[in-house]
């Protein structure tokens, strides 16, 4: 579904960005990317999404829908002149058809009472939820998420994580999630990549072979978490 071969994208004469990263992701797989701030996670997603074309290496994406790639940015990036409803429909190919489903998505992200509000009247978390609905309504084959839930409270976060799981199961969406939340990665992902260094390289890769939905308090996951913390810690010492 998604193949990356020796991809490199650096800034500042090779001092920032990411370097020589290779991996491949199967259809329907969820991959988490963990790593310290500034190690090139957002840059990697930008390259995958096609926004940044100045990379070396090869990237293949096998999506064949009308909307192969969806992206949730680190910031909401709503159009300030559109209401919540219009923002969610922004980019929908045939707005009429989506009109029927929009109410469903408004309910899913808990914004049905705010559909006529402008972004200036939303809280940070509400804006981010609008952006999430905007990405989901396009039903992309590959969904790239850059710290999608970092602005949300613990409860909403869990709800939206469950929403992602549901969508992933229904549509077999392939997902790449950048996150700082190890528990989130353990709850959602089939595999976890750990990036580190400046420029970032792929330091480790863990498979989480536990059936979903998972129990957030699972002892196996707790052991994995300790392992990840260890890896992140080692990486810090190296830097």
């Amino acid at each position: 579904m998604l193949k990356v071969k020796e991809a490199t994208r650096t800034f500042n004469n090779g001092l920032a960005g990411f370097n020589n990263i290779s991996f491949s992701i199967k259809e329907g797989e969820t991959v988490g990317i963990l790593g310290t701030s500034g190690c090139g996670k957002s840059t990697l997603l930008r390259v995958l999404s096609g926004l940044d074309q100045n990379y070396d290496g090869a990237i293949e994406i096998g999506g064949v829908g009308e909307q192969p790639i969806g992206m949730i940015f680190q910031e909401p990036r709503l159009m300030p002149w559109l209401t919540v409803r219009e923002n969610i429909l922004f980019g929908a190919k045939d707005e009429k058809e989506k009109q029927a489903t929009i109410q469903e998505y408004l309910n899913l992200v808990g914004l049905s009472d705010f559909d006529a509000h402008y972004p200036k009247d939303l809280s940070g978390g509400m804006a981010q939820r609008t952006a999430i609905a905007r990405a989901l309504i396009g039903e992309p084959d590959v969904l790239l998420l850059d710290e999608p839930f970092s602005a949300l409270d613990a409860f909403t976060k869990m709800q939206l994580q469950d929403l992602l799981l549901k969508i992933q199961k229904n549509r077999l969406t392939t997902m790449v999630i950048v996150t700082h939340d190890i528990d989130e990665a353990l709850y959602l992902c089939d595999r976890i990549f750990i990036l580190g260094g400046q420029p970032g390289t792929l330091q480790a890769e863990l498979s989480i072979d536990v059936a979903k939905p998972r129990d957030r308090g699972d002892s196996f996951l707790a052991a994995k978490k300790a392992e990840i913390l260890e890896l992140l810690h080692i990486e810090k010492e190296v830097v």
């Binding site: 909307q67 969806g70 159009m79 922004f90 980019g91």
Partner: peptide, 24 residues
């Protein structure tokens, strides 16, 4: 950053002008 949102949706340059640049 707003223009990038349009690019994710594969907007044509004309669509980017009409739906993002003009209102902004």
């Amino acid at each position: 950053k707003l223009i990038e949102v349009g690019k994710i949706y594969h907007f044509t340059p004309l669509q980017i002008v009409r739906r993002i640049i003009l209102p902004a």
